[in-house]
Amino acid sequence: MRALRLAWPLAVLSAAAVAAPVSYTVDPTHTSVYFAASHFDRTTVRGRFGKIDGRIVYDPATGAGGIDFTVETASVDSGNRSLDGVLRSPQFLDAANSPVARLRADRFVVENGKLVAVEGELSLLGTTRPLRLEVDRFSCGEISLFGIRRKVCGGDFHATVVRSAFGMTRFLPEVGDNVTLQISVEASPADSTAP
């Protein structure tokens, strides 16, 4: 199974808490990617991707890090089986020939000690374009769940993708060219187990 991997910025981790670069694994049960596009400029078509994978690497000493986030395009789910078939077809995601979409980033924009954006690139349908994720919220800390304590970093992010830039021009302009992405991510150190 080919999955997306995401290396995610942990720019607000305390340097005192971690002494070397740390690898974090995205928890797929608490991570989601939703999309939305206008339909005849009257309603909004929405959906999500069900199979997500990712890694985060962060070095608090230098502020360097990276995202490598992947999604299986065949896992698209709009809640409408017929529409899902169209979205998986060569008219849109072409899941048979392009099974993975990939987001990679290595620039974290921090203002006043707060992560405000992540800049990188999105690869889809054999095309790679710049992508900036705006941060709605992001934080790190320990949580306790079912008696297990672990460090967790997570947040909500959003971006707009112009689908025609990746060659997806079917049903333009009736189906909007601008696709909004809403991404929620939770990640823990790679050697920990998420309940």
Rank of each mutant, 00 (worst) to 15 (best):
D27Q: 07
D27T: 06
P28Q: 01
T29Y: 10
H30S: 05
T31Y: 02
T31C: 05
S32L: 00
S32A: 05
S32W: 00
V33A: 04
Y34S: 06
A37E: 06
A37C: 05
S38E: 09
S38Q: 09
H39F: 03
D41Y: 11
R42F: 13
T43L: 11
T43K: 06
T43F: 08
T43C: 06
T44N: 06
G47E: 04
R48D: 03
G50N: 14
K51I: 14
K51L: 15
I52L: 15
I52R: 04
D53Y: 04
G54V: 03
I56N: 06
V57Y: 00
D59Q: 01
P60L: 00
P60K: 00
P60S: 00
T62E: 03
T62A: 02
T62Q: 03
G63A: 10
A64Q: 09
A64W: 01
G65T: 03
G65S: 04
G66E: 11
I67C: 14
D68I: 05
D68H: 05
F69V: 15
V71Y: 07
T73H: 11
D77F: 00
D77S: 07
G79P: 01
D84V: 03
D84T: 02
D84L: 01
G85N: 10
V86E: 11
V86K: 07
L87S: 08
R88E: 11
R88Q: 15
R88S: 11
S89A: 02
Q91K: 14
Q91E: 13
Q91A: 15
F92D: 08
F92V: 15
D94F: 08
S98P: 00
S98G: 08
V100D: 07
A101T: 09
A101L: 14
R102H: 14
L103W: 14
L103M: 14
R104D: 10
A105S: 13
D106E: 12
F108G: 14
F108T: 10
F108H: 13
V110E: 10
V110N: 05
E111Q: 14
N112M: 13
N112I: 12
N112K: 15
N112A: 15
N112Y: 13
N112G: 15
K114M: 15
V116P: 04
V116R: 13
A117R: 07
A117D: 06
E119A: 06
L124G: 07
L124C: 07
T127Y: 02
T127M: 07
T127G: 02
R129S: 04
P130K: 01
L131H: 03
L131P: 00
L133A: 02
E134D: 12
E134I: 01
E134V: 07
V135C: 00
V135M: 00
R137G: 13
R137P: 01
S139F: 08
S139E: 14
G141R: 08
G141F: 01
E142C: 08
E142F: 12
S144R: 12
F146E: 13
G147L: 08
G147P: 09
I148E: 12
R149E: 13
R149F: 04
R150H: 07
K151E: 15
V152S: 00
G154L: 02
G154D: 07
G155R: 02
G155N: 00
G155M: 01
D156H: 02
D156A: 12
D156P: 00
F157P: 01
H158Q: 07
T160R: 09
R163M: 11
A165E: 15
A165D: 15
A165Y: 09
F166V: 10
F166D: 10
M168K: 07
M168A: 13
R170H: 14
R170I: 03
